[in-house]
Every structure is written in structure tokens, then in C-alpha cells.
Lab assay of single mutants.
Amino acid sequence: MEVRTIKVFTTVDNINLHTQVVDMSMTYGQQFGPTYLDGADVTKIKPHNSHEGKTFYVLPNDDTLRVEAFEYYHTTDPSFLGRYMSALNHTKKWKYPQVNGLTSIKWADNNCYLATALLTLQQIELKFNPPALQDAYYRARAGEAANFCALILAYCNKTVGELGDVRETMSYLFQHANLDSCKRVLNVVCKTCGQQQTTLKGVEAVMYMGTLSYEQFKKGVQIPCTCGKQATKYLVQQESPFVMMSAPPAQYELKHGTFTCASEYTGNYQCGHYKHITSKETLYCIDGALLTKSSEYKGPITDVFYKENSYTTTIK
């Protein structure tokens, strides 16, 4: 009895394709271990004539594949690729409408935090270190965002349907971005203890939790000093293409032309909904596939993004 075979390709990165001759009487799992086709788990399936010449994702289970996976995804987590594939199996079914010149995501599976993050990423200057993220990001900007969303979920250790947080998501993504040249110098002034300067680099240099107003941050924000008295913390120097200011959701007025974009969060910790506000020729609110415009805006804002380049204080 002759062994019926077909020729397929296996890959971990969709760049390096490895030619395989597979036995049609055995499952993919018996031949390769966990195997995925377009995100779908085909591990328990036997090869079919229609699979001839198709590319299958496999887990990096030998040295060659491990090197290829690390170079593309910059992670050695053995569960990463499987999590990416199972997320992709959902995100490829989502709709990605162009809204006001940006790629958004039609609401499904509690994905409003991903839509808000995706919209924000198209408006701030950011370059990702893992080629996987950078490639998928370019495709997302062009309207094909399924891979990018699935990668975000995998890097953030999230599953489809789980509630997510924009600030946490951005923080994970910033860790995989090139923020080497970003720098922030802060000064804390206390009447009792004097003053202390701190220099922050990388992710810490672009994120701040405690106030939404970048102007206020430049002037000074009140913080408790270690001595128990009130101290003032203010920005001395900022070198970065953008800054992200966050605070627990509270009524906040966004003035046209003073910011790049913002995240609105309605609801409580267990259950809520994100919308995205962007400042173009007027203010726009993007909620999944829905767009509304207004000249002014007041609502429960939790993150505001500002364009920056270089700032030095005039406070002496």
C-alpha cells in the first residue's frame, strides 16, 4: 500500500517557510505537534488534498525554529505562539472599519479597549522592536488589523473576551517599542525636605499616572512627601515624541487643539466601556464603527496623549 502524501510549508514567522512532505494517514499533531492554519487549530486533523502548498504555523520545537521565533517575536515564552494563534482565530472574524481616516474595530468580545489602543497607536510616533509587531502594525494602518490585535493580546497575556485596560495595554506595548531616546527629568520640591531631581528613561519617561493635564504637570502637581507634608512635583525636561497622561476616570474637559487623542471610560472596574476622542479640525468621538463630532467635550476621561518633541522648564 502506497503512502499518500502532500507537500506543505511549516513556519513560526510566515517569513521562513520549511518544506514538509506530510503523510495523509496521520494527523498534523502526530507529525508536527500543535499546528495552526489561519489561526485555526488543526492539530487533530489529517492532511487533505486542499492543504497542498498551504502554510501551517507550528510551535518552535527545534533550534532553527526557536531562533526564527525569537528573532521575529522577541520572546522565548513557549506558550506565546499558541496564544497568538488562538487569538487570531477570533480577531480574523472582527470587522476593521476605516473611521475618520483611522483603522478602528467594530465592537465584539469586549474589544473596546483594543480599538482605543489601536486608534491611539496610529496617532503617536512609535516604532516597535519585534519585527512581528512592526509588520502587523503597518498592515493594521492599511486596514488589516487582525494579526496586530492578536499579537497585542498575546504580548499582554490576554484572551479574547476578557476586559482590558488601555493604560495597561499601552504599557505592555511600550515595553516592546523603541523608547531608548526618551528621557524625563522631574523635580520634587518640599518646604521641609528641599528639592530632589529624578531622571527617568524609556517607558517611565512617557507615562504618568495622577493627572490628565500635561500643562498642569509642567506647572506642578501636589504629591505627598515622605515627611508627610505636601510637596510639588513638576516637569523639568521632556525628550520624547509623545507623552501619555493618565488618571482614574473623572469628568474632564478636553479643549480642541490642546491634545492629540484621549480615552474615555464609562462604567466601573468590573464592567465598563471605552471610547476614543481625537482632536482634528474639530473633536471626534470614535466608538467602534461609530463616529460623532463636537466642538467641545466633557466626560469621564482616563488617558490623554500629547505630541511632544523637546521641553525644558522655565521655572527657576
Rank of each mutant, 00 (worst) to 15 (best):
Gln31Asp: 07
Asp62Arg: 07
Gln20Val: 12
Val206Ile: 11
Lys183Trp: 05
Leu88Pro: 00
Cys271Lys: 12
Lys229Gly: 14
Leu59Gln: 12
Glu144Gly: 05
Val160Trp: 03
Gly267Tyr: 12
Glu162Met: 07
Leu133Tyr: 02
Asn100Arg: 09
Ala177Tyr: 03
Cys190Arg: 04
Leu133Gly: 00
Ala136Ile: 02
Val236Leu: 10
Val166His: 10
Phe242Trp: 07
Leu151His: 01
His176Leu: 09
Pro300Ser: 14
Gln98Ala: 09
His48Cys: 15
Ser50Met: 12
Cys225Lys: 04
Gly101Pro: 02
Tyr234Lys: 10
Asn147Gln: 14
Lys255Leu: 09
Tyr252Phe: 13
Leu88Asn: 00
Met207His: 09
Glu204Gln: 06
Leu114Asp: 09
Gly257His: 00
Ser295Gly: 10
Pro47Arg: 02
Gln20Thr: 12
Glu281Thr: 02
Phe305Asp: 05
Val221Glu: 07
Ile315Phe: 13
Asn178Cys: 09
Val304Met: 08
Lys158Phe: 05
Gln195Phe: 13
Glu2Ser: 14
Asp303Val: 08
Leu283Trp: 06
Gln238Ala: 04
Cys156Gly: 06
Ile277Leu: 09
Tyr36Ile: 01
Lys316Cys: 11
Asp303Arg: 02
Leu163Gly: 14
Asn268Met: 09
Asp41Glu: 15
Thr55Asp: 01
Thr292Val: 10
Gln134Ile: 08
Glu2Phe: 12
His90Ala: 14
Asp109Gln: 15
Arg167Asn: 06
Ala247Ile: 01
Val236Gln: 13
Thr313Val: 10
Gln196Thr: 14
Asn187Phe: 04
Glu308Thr: 13
Ala146Gln: 07
Ile45Thr: 13
Lys293Ala: 12
Phe259Glu: 06
Thr258Phe: 08
Lys218Tyr: 06
Lys201Asn: 10
Val185Pro: 02
Val8Arg: 03
Arg4Lys: 15
Pro130Phe: 01
Asn16Thr: 13
Leu118Ile: 14
Glu281Asn: 08
Leu283Phe: 13
Gly29Lys: 04
Ser171His: 11
Glu71Lys: 15
Tyr274Lys: 06
Gly39Asn: 05
Thr64Arg: 14
Thr11Ser: 06
Val8Trp: 00
Thr198Gln: 15
Thr302Pro: 04
Asn157Met: 05
Val304Gly: 05
Thr76His: 09
Val99His: 08
Gly272Ala: 07
Lys298Pro: 04
Asn111Pro: 00
Gly299Thr: 04
Arg167Tyr: 11
Tyr265Ser: 06
Leu153Tyr: 15
Glu71Gly: 15
Lys92His: 05
Phe174Glu: 00
Thr302Gly: 08
Tyr96Ala: 06
His48Tyr: 12
Tyr84Leu: 03
Asn187Met: 14
Thr10His: 07
His276Ile: 00
Leu59Thr: 13
Ala145Gln: 02
Val22Trp: 02
Leu200Gly: 05
Ala115Gly: 02
Met24Ile: 12
Asp180Met: 07
Lys316Ala: 15
Asp38Cys: 10
Ser246His: 07
Ala154Trp: 00
His18Asn: 14
Gly143Arg: 00
Thr91Met: 02
Val188Asn: 05
Val243Met: 07
Glu144Cys: 12
Leu200Arg: 08
Tyr214Pro: 06
Phe80Gln: 00
Thr35Ile: 12
Thr312Ala: 14
Lys127Ala: 07
Val243Asp: 08
His273Val: 01
Glu296Gly: 12
Trp94Lys: 01
Gly272Gln: 13
Lys233Ile: 12
Gly39Ser: 11
Thr199Phe: 12
Thr103Asn: 02
Tyr208Ser: 10
Lys158Met: 00
Phe80Thr: 00
Glu215Met: 06
Glu253Thr: 15
Thr313Met: 15
Tyr306Gly: 05
Gly39Cys: 07
Cys271Pro: 14
Tyr252Gly: 00
Asp287Lys: 06
Lys280His: 04
Asp41His: 02
His276Gly: 05
Ile152Arg: 01
Asp41Lys: 06
Phe56Val: 08
Pro60Val: 08
Val166Ser: 03
Pro97Leu: 10
Pro300Gly: 09
Val185Trp: 11
Thr302Cys: 14
Thr211Ala: 10
Val8Gln: 03
Pro241Ala: 11
Pro131His: 01
Val243Asn: 08
Phe70Lys: 00
Gln30Met: 06
His273Trp: 07
Asp77Tyr: 00
Ser171Ile: 13
His18Tyr: 09
Glu215Gln: 06
Thr198Ser: 11
Cys149Tyr: 05
Cys149Gly: 01
Glu162Ser: 08
Gln216Val: 06
Asn268Phe: 06
Met209Gly: 10
Thr91Asp: 00
Asn100Lys: 12
Glu296Val: 14
His48Gly: 13
Asp287His: 02
Met244Lys: 02
Asp62Phe: 03
Leu291Met: 04
Tyr306Ala: 04
Phe70Asn: 08
His256Ala: 07
Gly267His: 12
Ala231Phe: 02
Cys193Met: 01
His51Trp: 02
Thr76Ile: 12
Asn309Trp: 10
Tyr28Gln: 01
Ala205Arg: 04
Ala177Ser: 08
Tyr113Asp: 04
Asn111Tyr: 06
Ala289Leu: 06
Thr278Cys: 09
Thr43Pro: 05
Phe56Tyr: 06
Leu186Met: 14
Phe148Thr: 03
Ala262Met: 02
Ser50Pro: 07
Val166Ala: 13
Met85Pro: 00
Gly82Cys: 09
